[in-house]
Nucleic acid binder design. Structure first.
Length: 270
DNA sequence: GACACTTGCGGCGTTACTTCA
DNA sequence: GTTGAAGTAACGCCGCAAGTG
């Protein structure tokens, strides 16, 4: 393995390594969903009606938010029925979802302040159990068909839209994580190529200096040392490489294509 | 069969909220 | 108590594919 393998990815290193796309690069911190919740939060899986359970989770997550509004409960019942999977479009479901969020927000903060305005967004925090189940499901398949989504939503006492959003965000996080990994690989590859380039430049300089200070016939041994293996036969004294030329002069260098040129053979670095 | 239109869904960028140091 | 960073639920927009007339 190593950088050689890393480079065999069809990558063209025209890509820059400015740290673009790293604005939220915190790989280590990405694995701390456990810390999110205090243990007191529990997921009710009793026989409570769906609408009531949602309300319960909502109030749990809001720590003290009041949610005893009968009107809102009735609305939930309507929404729950309307969003039944069989004959309601997702668009409608999404609209309903927005309404529900709004209703939740209003009802849960009815005792506090209500100046959030119509654009206010109520954010739900998933419980440990909910997250775990979603995560487990995501491991099995990163996308859900409508049936799976509906089942999962029922099991978690969430709206299908919430499950859908969770999976979307989860896929996005997975992709971001993979991008970060790829970025690291590319960085290593770039460092390797840079080092290789530096080495070859140095070697080229040495060869040029040697060529200036020594007559041609004295350059042969040094030159053959830095040739690619296929050229060694030339230095060996008229091998089969270039029979016509070697027959005329023992000091004729190998033809250009036999020299290892780091600039015309960039792939040799990988 | 080709075409236009609708619908459903996923990706992406962004916003808003929560938590924590 | 305040603040900034990080994490993430939710939103809006867009493009694509499948279905329909």
């Amino acid at each position: 393995m190593g950088s050689d393998d890393l480079c065999n990815t069809g990558l063209v290193l025209g890509l820059g390594f400015s740290s673009t796309g790293e604005k939220s690069k915190k790989p280590a911190a990405a694995h701390r969903p456990d810390k999110i919740f205090e243990p007191s939060l529990t997921l009710s899986l009793s026989g409570e009606p769906y609408d009531l359970q949602v309300k319960k989770i909502d109030s749990d997550n809001n720590k003290g938010g009041l949610s005893c509004d009968h009107q809102s409960v009735d609305l939930y019942r309507q929404d729950s029925a309307a969003s039944s999977f069989s004959n309601v479009s997702v668009k409608r479901e999404r609209e309903i979802g927005s309404e529900e969020v709004e209703i939740e927000r209003v009802s849960s903060r009815v005792s506090d302040e209500d100046e959030d305005g119509p654009n206010g967004r109520k954010k739900l925090r998933l419980s440990k159990a909910q997250s775990a189940l979603l995560e487990e499901s995501f491991k099995q398949h990163s996308t859900l068909n409508p049936k799976q989504k509906q089942d999962l939503a029922l099991e978690l006492n969430l709206r299908p839209r919430q499950v859908e959003v969770w999976f979307q965000n989860r896929r996005a996080r997975t992709k971001l994580k993979q991008t970060e990994v790829d970025c690291e690989i590319l960085k290593k590859c770039c460092e390797s190529l840079t080092e290789e380039n530096r080495r070859l430049q140095k070697e080229l300089q040495e060869l040029k200096a040697l060529k200036l200070t020594q007559p041609l016939y004295m350059q042969l041994p040094a030159a053959t040392l830095t040739m690619c293996p296929s050229c060694e036969r030339i230095g060996g004294g008229g091998g089969g490489g270039v029979p016509e030329n070697s027959a005329k002069s023992p000091y004729v260098m190998a033809p250009k294509p036999h020299f290892y040129n780091p600039f015309t053979n960039p792939s040799a670095a990988c």
